[in-house]
Design a protein around this nucleic acid. Structure first.
Lengths: 273, 273
DNA sequence: CGCCCCGTTGACAAATATCAATATTTGTGG
DNA sequence: CCACAAATATTGATATTTGTCAACGGGGCG
């Protein structure tokens, strides 16, 4: 398959047991085999919690595949406030901008210590040339981001605070859970502050706190010091008030298409918990 | 007028003078020549204003290229309200979902009578196989949508009503203007109601009305019965409170990359008007 | 031990929604 | 061209949601 001579990195060894293979560009690789991407990566990069992978306005000649940790995409306002655009988990592809070489319009910051797999932009082009299907996969991944963001738009634009927070908790819970297939615990580490939740939902940290108090009081969900506990999944889905179709596409991948999952998950979303 | 039964069109002939070539998948075609896509389209489809191209939950075996007219993407709430996710102009590619064959999570409705170029999904795959670069172009287009939507998120999540409305008017003005290169009039037909503006900005039609009154009173912009007039472009950009980088990517295409346009437009956005 | 970040609470202010009545524009059929 | 109906816009009074400000508490970490 691969025609162009890739860099002499020893990535294959890492790539065969990379955590990020559950999703993203490497999701189609055969078990035990290094994914197509392996030959084109240059190195891994570690980012400490609170540090930027890249900042707003910064040009970059590489794209990044999140291997481990949580990061988030953000816009800044003049007064220092921020809007969080997206939480990226392992498998997420970052830094692919609409036009090659332009400065980034958003920044990416690590919530936890994180590791990204660096793919120089030139290598990415060779990868596309050698494996055309990868470009289609990438288009699908970006389209999934777009769908997710459409959901956020509706949440922020048309839902009240309670529903927005509920939807965010549910989304992060489900997306994080999808990374450990088979896991069924309703408690997890969520590396956020209440301020982060506010920045993502268009609310104030103070107001998020009030909403969380309600959700706790109503026995729906608890979030305390970076630990999330889903007390009543069904009611959480209810409060979040989202279209089940949308919910399913949060984690949908090519290959689970058509009817299998639709029938399996649609009845009620209990299945996800 | 004619809706359901699509007529067989001689695609190549149309494609050479298609309006949509200013942007989108066909933007890279050589002048006078039919674009690569031409050989893969099946027909054109006309949609009357107010009709859906496809509805929420609908499966589709085709993607669409907007040729003429305005359409918008929307989510619906249980109570009948809607959130407008995106306004699509000629050149926009619609119906490419994250996973092949799943039901659409959003609907698409025509604001004006519109024409779309229909590309059966199977043909699209053949197109990707025959012209791998098209898949990369598509990824870029979707990434541009994503950027735009990130901008909307920040607008709705962190800006007040005045700024949100200003940003929307500015965006639509600039994007529509980019379709007629060389045009410099500060007045245009904007096929929206104030309700639409509210649905896109997360506001009530009533409140949009009050904001528009202010903008008119302040001599910044007028919007009356589907006609938009920019009175003071500079101040409009100011009120919208937008990062110029972002603004530029509203219309950015591959090929105008690097520094030319950055230097040309950055100083102040007067250039856009 | 003490600091700092984060969470928590209350009182109050501001922004926006809601409801309802009226005006204006557009489109349609004579 | 006119008359009318329907859609859209406009305005005011009031209600609701959320933000702001300020103070205090509590827990982890050096």
């Amino acid at each position: 398959m691969a025609t162009s001579p890739p860099r002499p990195t020893p990535p294959a060894a890492d790539c065969t047991r990379c955590r990020a293979r559950v999703d993203g560009l490497c999701q189609t690789a055969r078990p035990g085999m290094p994914p197509a991407v392996a030959a084109y990566k240059s190195c891994d990069r570690h980012i400490a919690a609170g540090q930027d992978l890249f900042g707003i306005g910064q040009r970059s000649d590489a794209v990044y595949n999140v291997v481990d940790g949580w990061v988030y995409l953000y816009h800044l306002l003049e007064d220092g406030r921020q809007q969080i655009l997206h939480f990226a988990l392992p498998g997420a592809m970052l830094g692919f901008h609409p036009v090659r070489g332009v400065p980034a319009t958003y920044g990416v910051q690590a919530l936890t210590d994180a590791v990204v797999c660096v793919i120089p932009r030139d290598n990415l082009d060779r990868l596309f040339g050698d494996h055309p299907a990868v470009a289609v996969t990438l288009a699908g991944l970006i389209a999934r981001d777009r769908s997710l963001t459409y959901g956020h738009l509706t949440s922020i634009g048309r839902h009240r605070a309670r529903e927005r927070v509920a939807q965010l908790l549910l989304e992060l819970f489900i997306r994080a859970r999808a990374q450990w297939p088979g896991h069924r615990v309703e408690e997890m580490q969520l590396p956020l502050t209440q301020e982060h939740i506010g920045d993502a939902t268009g609310l104030t940290g103070v107001h998020v706190n009030r909403v969380l108090r309600e959700l706790r009081h109503d026995g729906i969900a608890e979030f305390h010091y970076r630990r999330l506990r889903i007390l009543d999944p069904d009611r959480l889905v209810d409060v979040a008030g989202i279209d089940p179709h949308l919910l399913m596409q949060w984690t949908a991948q090519e290959g689970m298409a058509d009817d299998g999952w639709s029938a399996a998950l649609a009845p009620r979303v209990r299945a996800v918990a």
